[in-house]
């Protein structure tokens, strides 16, 4: 059984996002079973576990991309399926596939991210996009096709969404992958900012978070030695 390691909780209202008895069975193998998890506004959760423990699967379930094999995920106390519209307006999910188009320039990628994120005032060559690119150290590369950038630079282009989005809840799968030390520090500062503004973050990472003042909570997915059960 997977036991969430909980620290003291200040907020006792309805959690922003909670998973109730969520299980994942894939190809007859149980990844995790009967998982309980609750996230309140302003919290940062790190989900850890060995390779193949089901971290990404759990994130995708929490984001509503995957249907849990059993149990349910709730946003503000509402079942995701019934509350999809509101939930997805408040959600920013960046998977390990970064959704960056190699055929587009960094600037174009940022523009379309903003556009599809629901920002109708977004323009190509937006002043705000230049700011974001500057913060992420991508100035001078903005016209370059993203496919020609290095892996770390491409990752930075993907992460610009953390600056351009207004979503309350971030679900990030291995956000630090391919980033250098500066990039990691930059990202953690952004996390801090987001949490201070009342936002929440769920993320997976193999790396321990460096900032001491980040109020980190941890959920560890332990390997299960159990045969698959039906239903």
């Amino acid at each position: 059984m997977t036991k969430p390691v909980t620290t003291q909780r200040v907020n006792t209202d309805t959690p922003l996002l909670h998973a109730d008895g969520v299980s994942s069975i894939r190809g007859g193998r149980v990844l995790f079973a009967q998982l309980q998890f609750a996230l309140y506004s302003g919290e940062l959760w790190q989900i850890s576990g060995a390779n193949g423990a089901g971290k990404s699967t759990l994130l995708r379930m929490l984001a509503g991309l995957l249907q849990p094999s059993s149990g349910g995920v709730f946003f503000n106390g509402h079942k995701l399926a019934a509350y999809r519209n509101e939930f997805h307006q408040q959600l920013l999910y960046i998977g390990h596939k970064a959704a960056v188009k190699p055929e587009l320039s960094a600037l174009e990628n940022v523009f379309w991210q903003r556009r599809l994120g629901g920002d109708k005032s977004a323009q190509l060559n937006d002043e705000r996009d230049w700011d974001v690119l500057e913060q992420l150290g991508l100035l001078g590369l903005e016209e370059e096709l993203t496919g020609r950038l290095s892996a770390g630079q491409q990752r930075r282009v993907a992460l610009t969404r953390l600056w351009s989005s207004t979503a309350e809840l971030w679900i990030l799968d291995e956000p630090f992958t391919a980033l250098d030390v500066d990039g990691i520090a930059l990202l953690q500062q952004r996390f801090k900012q987001h949490l201070d503004n009342g936002g929440s973050i769920i993320m997976t990472s193999h790396q321990p978070l460096g900032l001491a003042d980040l109020p980190l909570q941890q959920l560890t997915l332990a390997p299960l030695q159990q045969e698959a059960m039906s239903e």
Binding site: L65, H88, L91, Y93, G95, K97, A99, K101, L116
Partner: peptide, 13 residues
Amino acid sequence: YNDGSLEQLCLLP
């Protein structure tokens, strides 16, 4: 599908 843009479309309201 390969670069993750499709899952972002799934996450639109």
